[in-house]
């Protein structure tokens, strides 16, 4: 298990290093920030001076090494827009993104598990039909359109909830529902098909034959064994949600990391873009590690293979 974990940590570090490199290359393709930062009509000397101040006059490989060295210490330079350390600007937005991501995941796991197991238990009945049609629709509805529809219904027509922004728990409801719908649909479909497979397994028949209570059979023999694909999916979804649901955050003017990165990109604020992408990639890698750990707990066979 320890060797398995170490290997996974190493893979994760290599992935992060790769992300740093890509971010560095892409952000250098975006244009010269020194020209953009200065007012129109600045002299060549002023531009050159600012470039030197920002370290943009050094050869590219030096800039890359400096960047790497800084990244390891969490130093991505000062934001060009806010004149504060870029990492601080990003981390300030993390709570908003995390609140949204965890609410959406919570909704998805609870409703998805409920709907998925109902569909599996009542297979071949109306219940399964309704759940599956809703899940198919939920997966096919683009989140930003659903967001707009919810705004139209609950904010514009009924006036019950705010259209966007970030004040108080009420403003979390619509964005969380929007993202939660897709999560619910994905988990429900996956859990149902996983359970249908497990229900056919020999060990379930044995458990029933032993005369165990249906509830025990369901919780300990069926549900537990259908969880692995669900855990994988939850990990993928968590990564995508924590990566800032750029579009949803834009629809609801939600002050999260995704929207920050888009705005920073438009303003050519490289340090913030770099810090933001790094924070997201690191979060993503860590979540995937946790998912791998969970596998080991759910399925001892994987632990031993390690």
């Amino acid at each position: 298990m320890a060797r398995y974990l170490l290997g996974r940590v190493f893979d994760g570090l290599v992935a992060i290093l790769g992300v740093v490199t890509i971010v560095f290359v892409v952000s250098r393709l975006l244009g010269d920030p020194a020209v953009l930062l200065l007012p129109i009509g600045a002299t060549q000397d002023q531009i050159a001076e600012l470039r030197a101040g920002l370290g943009l006059d050094l050869p590219l490989w030096r800039q890359y090494l400096d960047f790497l060295g800084g990244a390891v210490q969490g130093d991505f330079g000062e934001s060009f827009q806010f004149m504060r350390p870029a990492l601080d600007v990003v981390l300030e937005r993390m709570p908003a993104t995390m609140a949204l991501a965890f609410s959406a995941l919570g909704i998805g796991i609870v409703l998805g598990a409920l709907a998925g197991s109902l569909a599996a238990l009542y297979r071949g009945t109306v219940v399964e039909g309704v759940v599956m049609v809703l899940a198919l629709l939920g997966q096919a509805t683009p989140v930003f359109w659903l967001g707009l529809l919810l705004i139209l219904l609950f904010a514009v027509e009924l006036g019950l909830l705010p259209t966007g922004g970030y004040d108080g728990p009420a403003s979390l409801i619509l964005p969380a529902l929007t993202l939660g719908t897709f999560t619910t649909a994905s988990i429900a479909r996956l859990l149902r098909s996983g359970m249908l497979d497990v229900l056919r397994d020999d060990h379930v028949r044995t458990a029933r034959a032993k005369g165990l209570m249906p509830r025990t059979v369901f919780l300990w023999h069926v549900a537990r064994n259908s969880l692995i694909p669900v855990v994988t999916m939850t990990g993928i979804l968590a990564g995508e949600l924590l990566g800032g649901s750029v579009v949803t955050e834009t629809v609801f003017s939600w002050p999260g990391v995704g929207r920050l990165i888009v705005q920073a990109m438009e303003a050519k604020d490289f340090p913030v873009v770099q810090a933001g992408v790094m924070v997201i990639a690191t979060t993503f890698v860590i979540i995937n590690l946790l998912v791998d750990l969970l596998y080991g707990i759910l399925d001892p066979r994987i632990r031993r293979r390690g």
């Binding site: 890509i22 892409v26 997201i280």
Partner: peptide, 23 residues
Amino acid sequence: MRLADIQLAVPLMLLALMVIAAL
């Protein structure tokens, strides 16, 4: 396969945004 792993460590939308912004 390493390249694939790296790409999977960045959310799709973000990657697309970065590349579009550059190109």
